[in-house]
Amino acid sequence: MLDVPAGRFAVWSTAWLTGRTSYDDALDAITGDTAHRVVGLPGTEEAVPLGWALSALRGTGERRVRLVLPVPGDVRGLPRVPGLAELALGAGQAAVGERLALVPEPLGPEVVQWAAVDLTGAAPAPPPVEGSLRALAGSLDVAVGDAARTLAGLDLARWHPEVPALLAGLGGTAQAPRLPPDTDPVAVALLARARRLHRVLDLALTDAPGGAVTHRQAAARDEALRPLADAVREAVTAAYNAVPR
């Protein structure tokens, strides 16, 4: 299942910085049962608890942290500072403020280490392009329909019988990660659908056992899924970055 620690950090730290939740609730929601530590936090020489990063953000006057999900060729939302793009591309995600960026790296099932990058003096990067939540939900519907038709033609169900059931269940109830209680319900629903579709992508992009997928079939599959992958990435970004009006 899609796990986006930088998304949790972005949405909950923003809620805390703007007075919409408590420090303890924010930290608990970000960390869960996993140990989190930060290296490279300005003013520190060793790994420190993640809570120090929250305090550092407030100390510098931050009010908003955004999730960025970079991919090769699209690093919009990342300030141009040495090393940040490489770190974020390697992790596939980053939590970016105006003065500090944080990139998570799982060190096993129980520990996440965050690399802090000082953004002092860096030109602010334009935030990721985000449409309205409802518009993105519509784009996701279109991408799902197009991908489903192509995948049916490729007989994907024979390789991965779970995929049709996942696609058929998109209209049902799905769970999203814990979000601040005042989060727009549209953002919650959008994130839940995107997580289910990420599971579809994981399955669909896995070659069938025994090499049953030909090179041509794999190329057609990947081409068909690219718009869906882009739509899922945009939906996840917008859902975690949604701020109540």
Rank of each mutant, 00 (worst) to 15 (best):
L67V: 10
T120K: 10
H36G: 13
G73V: 07
G77M: 05
R226W: 00
A26V: 12
E46M: 10
A135W: 02
S132Q: 09
D33Y: 01
R20M: 07
H36K: 12
V38F: 04
G97F: 01
D182T: 14
R245E: 08
T31V: 14
E162R: 15
D25C: 01
E162D: 15
Q113Y: 00
G7H: 08
A56S: 15
L50G: 12
A116E: 04
V112P: 08
L191E: 05
A123R: 14
P180M: 03
A135Q: 13
D141K: 10
E105H: 12
A187T: 12
V200S: 07
L54W: 02
A239V: 05
R196L: 14
G73A: 07
D33V: 11
A115Y: 02
P177S: 05
T150P: 00
V243M: 02
G51Q: 10
R158T: 14
R216Y: 04
E62R: 04
D182N: 11
T206D: 09
L2R: 14
R63F: 00
R134Y: 00
A239P: 14
G43Y: 02
P227S: 10
A157H: 06
L205V: 08
L69S: 06
P180L: 04
M1C: 05
R226N: 01
R195Q: 12
T206P: 07
R37P: 00
P109R: 12
R58A: 14
V75E: 13
A35D: 10
L205W: 00
L78G: 12
V112T: 14
D155Y: 00
P104H: 06
A219G: 08
G7E: 00
V129C: 02
L67F: 05
A88Y: 01
W159G: 13
R216C: 00
A147V: 04
A239Q: 09
W52E: 14
G145A: 12
V236R: 11
G171I: 09
I30H: 03
Q175S: 15
G169P: 10
E46T: 15
L57P: 13
A143N: 10
G90P: 13
L89I: 02
L69C: 03
R216T: 15
A148R: 15
L102V: 09
G77N: 06
A125Q: 09
A15R: 05
P49Y: 03
E62T: 08
D146I: 08
R99H: 12
P177M: 02
G73K: 12
Q113D: 00
A204L: 03
V11S: 13
P127L: 04
A218Y: 02
T173Q: 13
G77S: 06
D184S: 11
A239N: 11
D202W: 03
G73W: 03
A122K: 10
